[in-house]
Amino acid sequence: MANTSAKLGYHNGKKLFGIGMLYLSPALLLLGVFLFYPMFKTLYFSFFEVSGGGQVGDWVGWGHYAELFQSSEFRKSMVGTFLFVLYTVPAEILISLFLAVIASEKLKGIGFFRTIFSSTLGVSVAAGATIFLFLFHPSLGVLNSILGTVGIDGVEWLTDSKWALVSVAITTVWMHIGINFIILLGGLQNISRELYESAEIDGAGYFQKLFKITLPMLSPVLFFVIIIGVIGAFQTFGQIDILTGGGPAGATNIIVYSIYLEAFSYGNFGFASAQAILLFIIILIVTIIQFRVGEKKVHYQ
């Protein structure tokens, strides 16, 4: 008995490899078909004219990319995308952090508040966006009637090009609070109580403890939430489709929506693929930068 297991365990590398691959095969097959293959295919498409049905036409080389960099529409889309990251990520993290800090107190009934603060995780993008579509409604919406009662003129939240991206950002921030809150609260609860106790012996006040212990100890988690926030912002789609459809005049046509329109409304799979490759590269660069900066700034225990 011991002999056979030793054989299996140490001498039969090939067999082990076979067994390992057997267990990995479903994942390898699926990732191969639905992730690796399509990434290469997207790159391939980006150098051709490809119709909406997937028929590959003429080779255009870097043509699509050149066109992208000259297109004022695409420039607008990129500016919009970066503005959107700026509007959403800092706001959602600050709000979630505030909520996590007040919900980390050990008080009676705190579980109720934690549940409420987590709730937007259970709100789908379609449902959340539809509620905000109603709240933003120019004449029936609550937001404008609240503004009205304090004597401010209503805002055309979704049809004014100055406001549309902000409105989509407000919706997005609200929807992301749940997940960020859960992760940040988990991070807060992992900070050792002893640190606070010894700080209290030294006479540290509430804000001193917050800035000298809580935030530095929380930095790895904050860093994680920033990364998923930025990537999430780049991938925004559903709320735009429901709230603005990319409009007015392309004001909310940010990258994934732009890829979607180009591919599935205009049928330019080749040109859309070039945008998709650019999306991939941007997310890759952003992640690498964040890891570089993160390594230096983040305080690990």
Partner: peptide, 30 residues
């Protein structure tokens, strides 16, 4: 299962988390 090359394959799997799913949606649709 301590097979050869599993660190490499695990790293490959981890790296796929960097790929935004939307970047692959056109060929996936096809």
């Amino acid at each position: 299962i301590p097979f050869k090359g599993r660190e490499l394959i695990f790293f490959l799997f981890l790296a796929t988390m960097l790929i935004p799913w939307e970047a692959a949606m056109i060929p996936n649709f096809l």
